[in-house]
Design a protein around this nucleic acid. Structure first.
Lengths: 253, 253
DNA sequence: GAGTGGTCTAGACCACGAT
DNA sequence: TCGTGGTCTAGACCACTCG
C-alpha cells in the first residue's frame, strides 16, 4: 500500500483489486476466461464503464488478454506490481518473499553532480542531499543505490533511520506526495568501487536504472543511479498493439 | 504505421494523433497547458469520454501530466513510440533519423533451443526457424538479434529479402496479426562470438532484451534475444502512481 | 466560487468470434 | 445468429486547484 490517506479508493480500483485477488487465489485460473463484462457489472452492481476501467488496468499489466468477441483470458505466469512497489526496493523485496537489507554508506549534503543537476533541473552548484546505500537480498549484495534529493526533501532524510528500510515510505508519511517517475535502463561495466562493494570482479556487467522522481506539482525531487547485479534482478514489461509503447528505445544523449 | 488495413481508426485514436501532432509541431509547447477537456470536446465535436480516452493514452506515454483541478501540462522533452516502432528496429531507427542496416548472418530451420522452446511453449525437439542478424545504425554495429519463429510463421521468412529491413512489417503484409509482446531486460557480458560480431572487447557489458511476441489468438509466435551496445541504445519508461507499474522488477527464475 | 479533471451511470451501435 | 468486447454519447456529482 501507498501511504494514501483518507477517502476510500474509487469503485474501479476496488473492483480491480477484487479481480486481482480472485486470480491470485486461484478462483479464476490462468488460461480460463473471465465472466463477461456484462455479468461482472451485474455481479458487482456497477456500470459496464466502471468494469471496463478496472479491466483496462489489468490488461495493461498483462494479467488479462484477448478481446473483440472473446471473453478476456487470464494470462499464465502473470505478475504485477503497483507503483509504490516498483519505487521501493524494500517493498518490492518483501512482496517477492525476499528479505531486504541495506548498509547506508554515506549521507551527505553537497553540490549536485552534473547528472543529478541536469535531471533535477537545478542551476550549477546547487546543493542536494546525496545518499549511498548498498542494498541486500537475503543478506547478499544485490544493488548499489546513489540517490540525490533536492534540499528541502533531503533535509527530512537526516531524521530518517536509514537502516529501517524505505526512504519513500518515510517521505510519504512526512507529506511528500510522489506522483511519477522516469526510468532509463542500460548496462555498464562495474567500476572498481562498484565491484568492491558488490563483491564481484571489476568490469562485470551491471544493469543500471537511472530514475528521476517527480512530486504531484511536477517538480523533480530525486535523481538516482541504481546498479543491479543482473544475476539477482532484471526488469520486464508488457507491450500491446494499439496502445502507445510505455517502454521506449532511445539513443543516449 | 502498422499494416492495419480497412476500417478507419476510431475517433479517440484520431484525436490522440491530432493532439500528438500539435505538440510535435510546436503549436502546443512543453510546459504549457492544454485546453480543458470540455473545450477539446466541443472543438472536435466528440463527447468528453472520447477526449478522455485520447488523453489517457498520452498520459501513459508521459507526454502529458497533471490533473485534479489543473489542466493537463505538456511534458518537456517527451518522446513516444507506437507499438510497431518499438517492435521493429528498422522503423525505430528511421523515426530517430538514423539509418538502419543489417547483415543477415544465418537463416536456419532446426530444433528450438531450450530458451526458445520454453518461451514459445513448444515441446522438446520441435523445429523452428532461427534467424541471426547484426543490426547497424548509420553503418556501425549496434545490436545482435537472435530470433526463433514458430515453423508456420518462420516458413514465410524464407520468402523474405532479409536485407530489405523489417521482418515484422513483412509478416504483417502476409497476414500475421501480432498483438502483444513481453520483454525481459538485463545485462550480460559479451561472449567471444558477440564481441567479434559487434567489434568490441569480450566481456564488455551488453544490454539484453529477451522478447516473446504473441499473435491475436494469444499464441507465442517469436522469441528473440537481442543484445545492444549500451553506448548506442538504451530503454526508458514512464511510471505513474495509481496506475499499476507497466515495468516490473523480477528475480530471474 | 468557478473551473477542472476524476468518477460513474445508462444506454446505444458496431465488428467481431463462436455456433 | 447471438454474445462479446470496442466505441461513443449525454449527463451527473464530486474533490480538487486556483484566484
Amino acid at each position: 500500500m501507498t501511504s494514501e490517506t483518507g477517502a476510500p479508493p474509487p469503485l474501479h480500483r476496488q473492483l480491480e483489486a477484487e479481480i486481482r485477488a480472485r486470480i491470485a487465489s486461484g478462483r479464476w485460473r490462468p488460461g480460463t476466461s473471465l465472466p463477461s463484462e456484462a455479468s461482472l457489472s451485474t455481479e458487482f452492481g456497477v456500470s459496464r464503464g466502471t468494469v471496463r476501467q478496472a479491466l483496462t488496468g489489468l490488461r495493461d499489466e498483462g494479467l488479462l488478454f484477448g478481446g473483440r468477441g472473446r471473453r478476456p483470458i487470464v494470462r499464465s505466469g502473470a505478475k504485477s506490481q503497483p507503483f509504490s512497489t516498483f519505487l521501493s526496493f524494500t517493498e518490492w523485496a518483501r512482496s517477492q518473499g525476499l528479505n531486504p537489507g541495506q548498509r547506508t554508506l554515506e549521507v551527505a549534503r553537497r553540490e549536485a553532480g552534473a547528472e543529478a543537476c541536469c535531471a533535477l533541473g537545478l542551476s550549477d552548484g546547487t546543493q542536494v542531499v546525496d545518499i549511498l546505500r548498498l542494498r541486500l537480498l537475503d543478506g547478499e549484495p544485490a544493488m548499489l543505490e546513489r540517490s540525490s534529493f533536492v534540499l528541502d526533501v533531503g533535509r527530512l532524510i537526516f531524521d530518517f533511520d536509514a537502516e529501517s528500510g524505505s526512504i519513500f515510505e518515510f517521505l510519504g508519511r512526512r507529506g511528500v506526495a510522489l506522483d511519477r517517475a522516469h526510468h532509463t535502463i542500460d548496462a555498464v561495466a562495474a567500476s572498481t568501487a562498484d565491484a568492491q562493494l558488490l563483491g564481484i570482479q571489476g568490469g562485470s556487467p551491471l544493469l543500471r536504472e537511472r530514475r528521476t522522481t517527480y512530486d504531484t506539482s511536477g517538480r523533480p525531487v530525486e535523481y538516482s543511479d541504481d546498479r543491479y547485479l543482473p544475476t539477482l534482478t532484471n526488469f520486464s514489461i508488457e507491450n500491446r498493439v494499439g496502445r502507445a509503447a510505455p517502454l521506449v528505445r532511445h539513443r543516449p544523449s
